[in-house]
Simulated assay, not measured.
Amino acid sequence: MGSHASRTSTLPPDNGQARLLPQPIPYHLMEQIRRAIILGQHPPGGALREQALQAEYGCSRGPIREALHLLERRGLVTHAPRHGFRVRQVDAAEVRQLYELRALLERHVVEGLVGRITPALLSELRAVNALMGRHRDAGDVERYIEANIAFHATLRAHAPNDPLERAMQVIYEVGEPLRHALLVRSLRTSRATEEHEAIIALLAEGRVADAAAAMHAHVFTGMPAALETVAEAAGRDPA
């Protein structure tokens, strides 16, 4: 995979020029390992052996260990004394809990749009949803997920709620590997864009309560397939 060279991140412009500063190595490694987890290169329940990761990324153990601890705090990795780090493996009960909590939170996001529906919001939602449809037609799972996340982020941006935003970030992060695994199997048959269109139409009519109920139902659409994906993963003997 990637090297351990520092990645750059863009900061706010300074006198009209964007300044680029190196990203600390542990954070760069965290992003690389996170991506590998999401793509299934490190399967749920699989061991994340520090020595193997050192060899893969060509760096010392300290930054690797710090990166793994960062991933642990983000909910993607677990750690137990004498057993080391492993990719977090969710079971059926946790999947249901994640879907139930996300459905409630996403519903609350839409409910927060009362008095805040504007032509700009509707235009943004339509544009990002159309992008989702194009990525689905192209079979591009990663870009489809990015556009889907952007759709929901657009809703939150028009009804700012910092505690809600923080909670949503945790929910999305923990569920990201499962979301990717699910869509690898079912992207072509996903109906999310059509369900989004129905929500946008309700918002355009000012029917916020109905749009919130539609969002709640929309979140649960993928739960049966997610439970099936988790059941199949549980049948695999982790490394």
Rank of each mutant, 00 (worst) to 15 (best):
H4K: 02
A5N: 05
T8P: 01
T8N: 04
T10A: 06
T10N: 04
L11Q: 10
L11T: 07
P13A: 09
P13F: 01
L20V: 01
P22C: 01
P24D: 02
Y27F: 05
M30I: 00
I33V: 08
I33G: 04
I37P: 03
I37M: 06
I37L: 03
L39S: 11
Q41N: 11
H42P: 00
H42M: 04
A47C: 10
L48M: 02
L53N: 08
R61K: 15
I64L: 05
E66H: 07
A67K: 02
E72R: 10
R73G: 13
R74D: 11
L76M: 05
V77F: 04
V77A: 08
P81M: 03
R82V: 12
H83A: 15
G84N: 06
V87M: 02
R88T: 13
Q89V: 08
A92F: 03
A92V: 09
E94N: 07
R96H: 14
Q97G: 15
L98A: 15
L101F: 08
R102T: 15
L104T: 14
L104V: 11
L105W: 04
R107T: 14
H108V: 08
P119K: 06
A120P: 00
R126P: 03
R126D: 11
A127L: 05
A127S: 14
V128T: 10
V128M: 00
V128G: 07
R134E: 09
H135D: 09
V141I: 07
E142W: 04
R143P: 00
R143V: 07
E146S: 12
E146M: 08
A147L: 02
A147M: 01
I149V: 10
L155E: 13
P160D: 06
P160R: 04
N161F: 07
L164Q: 12
E165I: 00
M168W: 00
M168L: 10
V170S: 15
I171E: 14
I171F: 07
Y172R: 14
E173T: 15
P177V: 05
P177Q: 08
P177H: 09
L183K: 13
L183T: 14
L183R: 07
R185E: 13
T193G: 12
E197H: 13
A201E: 13
L202C: 07
L203Y: 06
L203Q: 11
A204Y: 06
E205W: 02
G206Y: 03
G206D: 05
R207H: 15
A209K: 03
A209C: 04
H218M: 06
V219F: 06
T221H: 13
T221I: 02
A225Y: 04
L227H: 05
E228V: 10
T229S: 06
A233I: 01
G235W: 01
D237R: 14
P238A: 11
